[in-house]
Design a protein around this nucleic acid. Structure first.
Lengths: 222, 222
DNA sequence: ACCTGAACACCGTTCAAGT
DNA sequence: ACCTGAACACCGTTCAAGT
């Protein structure tokens, strides 16, 4: 185990190791030193493959987004299974893209922080944006509105998943002090809707609902 | 300058100092040690006021959100200045809340990362959510849909600002290598819409557009 | 209660050196 | 080219001790 040219490892291996740590211990635990150790390397060795930690993170984002844009080009019957198995209208494809993006983000704990902390202008991010804009262009929007709509869908998904996962990652909440008399709440509406955000399925439904409403607002002709 | 009870400082002072660092040097630079130094204290002294760094960050989120919910209760004529100065319909109030939230998030660089890295379930976050749901309830939606709509607006704003500020914080992009023959782009639609995301005003307009479309989709009756 | 100083177990990154 | 080892300037947090 002496130093020397070994090339035993690739950029992809490093990204994989980083994702493993991300999934197991969260975003904060993804350190250059930790990833290197997981690969049996010294931290400085990683700087041969990536110029900095943020370059590594950019590569992670690219891998995370890989294939999401394809969810809109293949038939959406697999992703949007509760629809008619009919052809991929632009509406179905927008939904499929949104759902696919959400699934990628939810799959790894801490992926949203990862995606939020960088510019999101890599090749696969552009693929996704291109696919979304194409859908809205097909729907008849002019190029500016189609771009705005694509941006809006992307923002919607990112924001929804950010709020969803932040809630899930909440630390142990201190139990309410046992009180005999309930004070009237300052947030009755919020509490009445608490049942909507419990599990991941409800969150997925909420996202679909939001994107569908957004589409309805963008292309009102039904 | 000997140790001893001094109480020369309050929780608010610490939060203020933290915001100053956030604004000047970004989210990553907000450290317990740095904040303490800015106040002329030892890092450990801060643990008398806040149980942990994340407790400090939660307090920062609360201060950031303070007053945002009020943007929907006061007349929106100030925030939504290009509308008729007429009364606050629920629609105007939703827009005013969204714009106010965006302004708070954009005001401090790194505020989105701050808000994304925590649960966002403090008192002021609930105030905002409550105000949004109330608007949609007034619009005639049942309580579940009103909650979904409120959630959607919040997600939309957070996501839009996240994408907006991430783009702005991008490091120096390497200049395209000078080429004489342009290769056909893989993302023509994305590039054709680049003019939409240049400055902050355009971003603000994009957000308003998106929220308006979302509202249109949620309450189609116009 | 409020604060210090020392300490523990970490970080990202650079640099000189080895093969 | 790929890797190590030492080093620099940082982290969050804990603990014993001072007033």
């Amino acid at each position: 185990m002496k130093p020397g040219p070994r090339r035993s490892i690739s950029q992809a291996d490093i990204v994989d190791a980083a994702f493993e740590i991300l999934e197991e211990k969260g975003f904060a635990a993804v350190s250059v030193r930790g990833v290197a150790a997981a690969l049996g390397l010294t931290p400085t060795a990683l700087y041969t493959y990536f110029e900095s930690k943020s370059a590594l993170q950019a590569a992670m984002v690219e891998q995370l987004l890989a294939g999401v844009a394809d969810a809109g080009t293949i038939g959406p019957a697999d992703e949007v299974s509760d629809q008619d198995a009919s052809a991929g209208t632009w509406r179905d494809r927008v939904l499929a893209l949104a759902v696919a993006l959400r699934e990628r983000l939810v799959a790894h704990a801490g992926a949203v922080v990862l995606i939020t902390s960088g510019p999101l202008d890599g090749a696969r991010a552009r693929d996704l944006e291109e696919a979304l804009i194409a859908c809205f262009a097909e729907a008849g929007l002019d190029s500016d509105d189609a771009a705005r709509a694509g941006r809006a869908v992307r923002a919607h998904v990112v924001g929804a998943v950010a709020l969803e996962t932040a809630r899930r990652a909440a630390p142990e909440q201190m139990p309410e002090p046992a009180t005999l008399w309930r004070e009237p709440s300052r947030h009755p509406l919020v509490e009445a809707s608490a049942h909507l955000a419990l599990d991941g399925d409800a969150a997925a439904d909420s996202l679909r609902w939001g994107v569908e409403r957004l589409i309805d607002g963008v292309v009102p002709a039904r």
